[in-house]
Design a binder for these strands. Sequence first.
DNA 1: AGGGAGCGAGAGCACTGCTCTCGATGCATC
DNA 2: GATGCATCGAGAGCAGTGCTCTCGCTCCCT
Lengths: 255, 255
Amino acid sequence: MLSFVVAALDLGHTFGMAATNPTITPARTARDRARIELTDEIKVVARRQLAEQGSAALSLRAVAREVGMVSSAVYRYFPSRDDLLTALIIDAYDAIGARAEAAEREARQLGTVDRWMHVCDVFRSWALANAHEYALIYGSPVPGYAAPEATIVPASRVPLVVLRLLADGVDSGEIATGTTPAMSRTVRSDFAQLRRDAAVGVPDAVLSRGLCVWAQVLGTINLEMFGHLHNVIHDYDGFFSLQMRRAADFLLLGE
Amino acid sequence: MLSFVVAALDLGHTFGMAATNPTITPARTARDRARIELTDEIKVVARRQLAEQGSAALSLRAVAREVGMVSSAVYRYFPSRDDLLTALIIDAYDAIGARAEAAEREARQLGTVDRWMHVCDVFRSWALANAHEYALIYGSPVPGYAAPEATIVPASRVPLVVLRLLADGVDSGEIATGTTPAMSRTVRSDFAQLRRDAAVGVPDAVLSRGLCVWAQVLGTINLEMFGHLHNVIHDYDGFFSLQMRRAADFLLLGE
DNA sequence: AGGGAGCGAGAGCACTGCTCTCGATGCATC
DNA sequence: GATGCATCGAGAGCAGTGCTCTCGCTCCCT
């Protein structure tokens, strides 16, 4: 729910770089302004290096060199390389989250299947266009690095879009409920919590299928991007489209 | 098909370490023997470091130190750190591949659903028990590192198990065919090739659904292992089991 | 028996993340 | 407005990395 507040702030004001900075900094003094600008410049350069060569090649010293600082100066802005990486991860989550939300908004008047297809297409397009950032957030986490609390809210933006799709589809009757599957008490209560938080009115059967197809989206994109379909599938666009349509079939239980 | 040859060799002879070495080396001289032994020892130590701290922390110098060599000596056995990593990747693919094949063999007399559930369980168990190795092969590839040709055969062992499951399920009539989905000419020919190679008699509709559920397996495990279900799902075992059963429903089209 | 290939050790290069110290500068307080 | 403090950038330095090159030693094939 906090994510909606953040999103609203991002859309309301146009801070430029403040999208990732949850604390509102008025930037009164010149020093504060310079700090914000430099922090942003470091992130821009780092994001470029990340996009070009991947997360392992992201070197704090190289970033410093390009920004025109000495390496130790960068530590005034980011306590460690991992913190810089965390900032980029949050930005990536926010970027794909905003894209997914926009896609859902664009297709709101369409039926559930078309909205689903559109969100999937936009999601995959972003992944292809930002391969290293995608790998950073949806591939294996960079080793020895534990995702800090600050990432969980931006990370939930895309899943929230999917959950809203489920809720709307159930509301409109497009998504058939089906028989409630057998599950453990714990999973049942997990689903109940999820329903309370972000999927009001969505029964367990649909939540289960929704998580199935969401996992399938990530799995299919990972298969494609990480080379597991090499020499097997040649028309990646057509394949993804086909598979997402199958996923929609399963989600609606219309087959 | 080559993979079957390799697998047969691995099972027939008990070379110990030769699983990843496609060229058959008789180890005639003492020097050859020592080379093979040292190569293996380096891999064992490296695999331990990988398991303990992840791929990024895998240091050639640290491995050398533990083996009791100087770092430059290791380069006699592996031309680069990436080559050592490649050897570990191949080993990981072979390990999970062998486990999946064994699981499929164990459950051969059972029905398609039970075989599917068993293979999924074994696969996930291996992933949990070997998190860093799993991340190495099914997470994002280590950045700047392109999977060499030598990995594709061991990498195909698990997918081949899944494809065999599909073929058997179609044969036995447990897997309903369903209507052939619309797809591009390229995807159709990709599927035809796949059918010729490793899924004789499996129609396009089933291949499509099979790739759906396979992507779902990887997606679900990735969601769990990479922290995307943190604070959402608490009973991971129960959740996975539930989701795999839903996947089986979809695969059979029995709902 | 000789000569070449393979081997391990060591030094060294360029690079990394990170720490510490040292002046300089901006800023809020007296 | 002067003072004192926090912030800042620069530089040196430490421990570590992947990788290269040279140097002897040893094993093995001819």
